[in-house]
Every structure is written in C-alpha cells, then in structure tokens.
C-alpha cells in the first residue's frame, strides 16, 4: 500500500482530474455548446404538469408543477420529493466513477502527497489512505489502521490523520450523493437559486479538513507537549484550541 507513493501518474489522469473539477464547478453553465461539460446542465430538469386551471378576465391561466405536485406535507411529500433526487444522485455517482476510472483520484493523490507533511504533519505515505477515505470511511480507517500497525505512522500521526478523516468523512461520496441535489433547487420560475457549486463546496470542505487536523495538532501540542513527548503535566487541561 505504502510503496505506491511513487507510482507514475499519466498526463491523462491530470486531465481527468481537471475535467472532473470543471464538470462539477458550474463554470461552463450557460456557455452554449460548452455547457455539455457542465453537471447541472446535463442533469437537466423534470417536465412540468398542469396543476391548476383558473379562468380570469385575461383568459385561462394554467399553473404548472413538477411530478412532485404542489402543496404536499409530511412523509408522503418527503417521499415524492426524495424521488426527484434519485436521478441526480445516479448521474453524479456515474460521472464520479468515470473520472475515477481515468485516474482523477490517482492524480489528486500524486499532487497531494508532497503537501501532506507541511500541511497536516502526516507522512506522504498516507496519500493512498487519504484518497480512499474521501470515498469510503471504512476503507480509509482500515488502511490507516494498517499503516499504524506496520509502523508507518506514529501514534501522534495516526491521531492527527484520524481527525482529518473524521470531519467531513467520505467527503466525495457524501457530498455528491446528497449535497449535489441542493444545487438543483429552483424557484417557482424554474431558476436555479443556490449560488456557488458543489465543486466549490467540496473545495471548502477539503481546506477545513486540513484546518481540523492542525487544530488537533495544536491541541496535542498544548496538552501533551510537542511531537512524541509523553504528557507529564496532564494537570494542565488546555481545552479546545
């Protein structure tokens, strides 16, 4: 696992990573033919159905609704709404699988590896486990345990890495399987209402995962002294960082 740090990553993998970021960033939304490379554009919209027909002085007015209907409440409304989320989840996961197949995550691992020590005080050999943890908390934690048992990680590094995984766990799968649907919300006129994009939100989460790891490191420094040294003065309870 850990000897894969230096595996070669093809140029295609970097292209796949860049394509994935652009695809989910919304950058090409509404850019004519280029919008074919935009997630929300391809995700499309539901057709509408007639909801109510009223007659007024101006003639006949028809209001429309989606298949969810209008005016629902409670579990049944929740179910109908949840059904409208299914295609977004399927589409997002299908595209993630494609980008992953072309090496997007490999490229991300390669780019991240040299940054792990300076940014999170964990060795570059955790790159593989880190990328796995973005997709599956179970895979990430199992690989971390393995690294710790093999002596690749000190106890302190293991704890910091656990903190990294614990905040925004399985970031990619969770964000794209549930968060992506939030960016499909529209107002009554059918216009998209949520500014920013899922890719942007994932970027913010990623930054804060590093923030979390560093806050925990700070906590360890305050309560147990700098790297490695066992806590002698446990009496000093320096609560949160």
């Amino acid at each position: 696992m850990s000897n894969s740090t230096d595996r070669k990553v093809s140029i295609g993998a970097y292209i796949a990573l860049a394509a994935a970021i652009i695809f989910f960033s919304g950058l090409l939304q509404g850019k004519g033919a280029l919008s074919v490379f935009d997630f929300n554009t391809l995700n499309g919209s539901f057709g509408t159905m007639a909801n109510a027909v009223t007659e007024s002085a101006d003639g006949i007015n028809v209001t429309t609704t989606t298949m969810r209907g209008a005016g629902g409440f409670g579990a049944r409304d929740g179910f109908m709404f949840a059904l409208t989320l299914v295609p977004t989840v399927m589409f997002a996961m299908g595209m993630i699988a494609v980008f992953e197949h072309y090496g997007a995550l490999e490229a991300a691992r390669k780019l991240l590896t040299p940054l792990l020590r300076p940014l999170a005080s964990i060795p570059g050999s955790t790159g593989m486990a880190l990328i796995a943890s973005l997709q599956s908390t179970d895979a990430g934690s199992a690989m971390t345990r393995q690294l710790a048992d093999d002596g690749e990680l000190t106890k302190r590094e293991t704890d910091i890495f656990a903190m990294f995984q614990f905040t925004a766990g399985a970031t990619i799968v969770n964000a794209f399987s549930s968060g992506a649907v939030l960016y499909t919300l529209t107002n009554s006129a059918g216009e998209s209402v949520v500014p920013t994009s899922i890719a942007f939100a994932v970027g913010i989460m990623f930054i804060f995962k590093f923030v979390g790891a560093n806050l925990f490191k700070l906590y360890l420094n305050l309560t147990e002294g700098k790297a490695g040294k066992k806590a002698v003065e446990t009496a000093i309870e320096g609560e949160k960082a």
Binding site: G74, A75, G78, L85, V86, V89, M90
Partner: peptide, 29 residues
C-alpha cells in the same frame, strides 16, 4: 463504468437518500 457508478448511485439513493429525506420531512412536519 458510468452504469456501474449510476447503479451505486441508485443504491445510495434508494437506501439512504429516500429514507433520510422522508425522515427529515416527518421531523420538520
């Protein structure tokens, strides 16, 4: 590859998204 991923999405949606959203709507109600 796409279909395999979409299938995973279907499983996530049907076993996680739908029950979770339904629960949330009931709680909010």
């Amino acid at each position: 590859i796409f279909v395999a991923g979409a299938k995973k999405g279907w499983i996530i949606a049907s076993t996680s998204t739908v029950p979770n959203v339904l629960m949330a709507f009931v709680i909010i109600a």
